[in-house]
Nucleic acid binder design. Structure first.
Lengths: 156, 156
DNA sequence: TATTGTTATACTCTATAACTATA
DNA sequence: TATAGTTATAGAGTATAACAATA
């Protein structure tokens, strides 16, 4: 029934030990990260998802909503709400796609690119605070390992 | 500022590069992990949160709901729903705490401990599939780095 | 007065179904 | 027939407020 010892840091090893479970760690670190970044992003009137969409457009250029949907793995209907918000804040524009009149081309406005750049800088700086106990090498390792797992699981 | 290149598909190149952002990676890997484990857990009639609660009880012994709340960082009202479900499946029992008649002692039933052990074994096995592109050493590194970050951010 | 567990309620996030206009 | 975008709607998940029993 109950295991004899655990410590959360020292010589744990026993059996269950929640704090070492990958699923628990991923959920928890993700939660902590979002909570840590939220205030920094809030001052720009955006959240992580909006920034992610702006990042995708900034990296790959103007795109129909459908392409953003595939890129970010969010639902079509969710994307509508995201673009609504971004357009309302005048960070992106919706234009008819000349090649396919069903589609809308989403582009960053100059203001949008400006906000994106500043928000990203704030995020990056904040991230250093979040990762302050990891060396530069460890930070790079963490990113690399997560990326590797992400690619494994995506291209199953 | 931004790193020059990335891969992911063709020769993407640009600056922002969503797939390298820590926030994006954490969210994505967490999502992929949950999706990967859900079917395995579903066959036991539970989900990751229920297993986490069972793990905590199994590791630390019977506990009042409040202690589980602190341990898992979920809301009191959420915990009520979780314990309701576990009790309904006869995986745990709610007994009056002899020392504090306001509190309930939550204990794993023998059946609960049995399910917990089998479910955990299934999760562990499934996890190897999820992490199949990481060496044993890399898996350990990933866990260690996440744990370190979690502790940093928790004990701010 | 404060705390444990509870209910009712609201709010966010996300997904489903059905519609429109194009292809 | 299928696809891009949209709307309305419903379902999870989670948080807030208020209450009963007890400390």
């Amino acid at each position: 029934m109950a295991s004899p010892r655990e410590k959360t840091a020292g010589g744990t090893r026993a059996q269950p030990v929640l704090a070492q479970r990958l699923g628990y760690l991923l959920k928890r670190v993700n939660f902590l990260y979002q909570a840590h970044q939220a205030p920094a992003l809030e001052s720009f009137g955006i959240d992580g998802r909006l920034l992610a969409v702006m990042t995708a457009i900034s990296a790959d250029g103007p795109a129909p909503q459908q392409r953003l949907v595939e890129r970010l793995t969010v639902d079509r209907t969710t994307m509508v709400a995201i673009i609504d918000k971004l357009e309302q804040e005048q960070l992106v524009t919706r234009e008819p796609d000349p090649h396919d009149r069903r589609a809308h081309r989403i582009s960053l406005t100059p203001h949008g690119e400006n906000v994106r750049r500043q928000a990203q800088a704030a995020v990056d700086q904040n991230e250093q605070q979040f990762l302050r106990d990891l060396s530069a090498r460890e930070q790079q390792q963490l990113r690399r390992l997560l990326q590797k797992v992400s690619e494994t699981a995506t291209t199953r």
